[in-house]
């Protein structure tokens, strides 16, 4: 299974907003499948890190309460045009995802 990670940045007045979308199921481990009546095992992103020029800026720890297909926005300051913004995440099954973009 490949999980898509997408990212977009928008700079205004010295503040760069980073918008992140990960197509992750974020299964809680508390829900029964309507088809099999078995619990769907927990599968969720644990940590998502946003970095600027490879230096971590925001490190987010998540629980099962974050919605399916997490859409997250953070804001960075002092980012200059051409700076590399990257996002990395890891879930409870050890799957990882990565996306990067340059500040326009």
């Amino acid at each position: 299974m490949h999980i898509a990670t997408r990212m977009k940045t928008r700079t205004q007045g010295g503040i760069t907003e980073v918008l992140i979308l990960v197509n992750h199921p974020m299964d809680t481990g508390l829900v029964k499948s309507p088809l099999t009546h078995k619990i769907i095992p927990a599968h969720f992103i644990k940590t998502l890190t946003v970095a600027i020029n490879h230096e971590p800026a925001v490190i987010t720890d998540m629980g099962i309460a974050v919605s399916k297909d997490p859409l997250i926005a953070v804001k960075l300051k002092g980012a200059k045009s051409g700076d590399l913004v990257s996002v990395d995440w890891i879930d409870n099954e050890g799957m990882t995802g990565h996306a990067e973009t340059h500040v326009s």
Partner: peptide, 17 residues
Amino acid sequence: ATLVNLTPHAVGFFNVR
């Protein structure tokens, strides 16, 4: 639900569903 660690690069802002 979520715990966010900020560095001096970040602004005090977080948006999540």
